[in-house]
Amino acid sequence: MQNYLEFNFKINPVQPWSEILMAELIEVGFDSFTEEHYGILAYVQKDAFNEDEMKSLYIFNNPDVEITYDFKEMPNINWNEEWEKNFDPIYVADKVLIRAEFHAPNADLHEIVIQPKMSFGTGHHPTTHLMIQQMLEMDFRDKSVLDMGCGTSVLAIFAKQKGAGRTVAIDIDEWSVENSRENAARNGVELDISQGTADNLGSEKFDIILANINRNILISDIPVYVSVLNDGGQLLLSGLCFFDVDDILEVCYEEGLTLKNRQQREEWMSLLLEKN
């Protein structure tokens, strides 16, 4: 078991910034959160924490929000066990059920079964929900798919269940890669899963790219995604708030993408784009 640090973040105003802070903290190693009326409690492995890296996040330099924090070291806890105790099944558009093995199955819904380890993308976060909702209306039959920042690989698994061909899943986190492999086997699908970033993409082209990542990485990596996207291919993005959309679309339009659909859940957005 790893020693953890517990951070007590006070946020003013709390909304929509608490969700945004959680999304950005995931990028620097935080893996568990509890929402409070004044902000959030956030947890990170002590050996993985770098305070300078955390302070360089976009949100800590945003004049529209004030964030203060303190932290303390926590005793050894089996966080996976704690996570499982609090993992509820997720329903998307009354069509898809994301559940763990210890939940009862539902034959009337399309099911994705995952082990709820500490990987982002269980479906509880609005951005994952938005991605699944958009994917329901997309044609994946025999399409090559790339899931960037795959987390649990719930999106890649759903793509395969919808008939996708070769499907690649990439995440920067070793824990997510391990969890993704377990979840792929659990759902009986074949994924090519590896650890890395957009810098690791080669010359292979894809018909559909899924990227549920924070705004800064999206802005940086969209040109790379477009370079490996087939003509007429689709790029589905989330991990961004409504006030990030203009910045994201500016980059997309510069890269020759056309906006086909947008959806919003709470303050979060998803964008479906097509390469001309």
Rank of each mutant, 00 (worst) to 15 (best):
R181Q: 15
S227W: 05
M269R: 04
L210Y: 05
A107S: 10
E204A: 14
N230P: 11
F30R: 03
T258V: 13
F140L: 00
Y225P: 01
P89I: 07
T197E: 10
L25V: 03
Q15K: 01
D142T: 09
N200G: 14
N200L: 01
A93K: 10
R186I: 06
D139I: 06
K162L: 13
Y225K: 02
K85P: 04
M269E: 15
E53V: 07
K162G: 00
M22V: 10
P126E: 15
I90Y: 05
E82D: 11
V113Y: 01
D70S: 12
Q234L: 14
L249C: 10
D88K: 12
F87W: 03
D70Q: 10
D47Q: 12
K55P: 02
V228K: 09
D52N: 09
M54N: 06
A104W: 05
F49Q: 04
L240C: 07
S238H: 04
W83S: 08
D31T: 11
N76H: 14
Y69Q: 01
D70K: 05
K55Y: 07
Y91W: 08
A184C: 08
E53W: 04
P63C: 08
M269P: 03
D231R: 10
I90F: 02
S32G: 10
I213Y: 11
L41D: 05
L21Q: 09
G232T: 15
E27I: 06
F102E: 05
L229W: 11
A169D: 06
S220H: 14
T127Y: 02
E254H: 13
H124L: 07
P126Y: 06
N61R: 06
V65N: 03
A156L: 02
N8M: 08
K46I: 03
D192F: 05
E84M: 09
G151I: 01
N78V: 03
I11S: 05
N179W: 01
V92P: 02
I193L: 02
L237D: 12
Y43G: 00
L210G: 06
Y225N: 06
S144N: 11
G29M: 13
L249Q: 11
L41P: 00
L273R: 01
D94F: 01
K72Q: 12
E84S: 10
T68S: 15
F33H: 06
Y43N: 01
I77P: 00
D64S: 12
D70L: 01
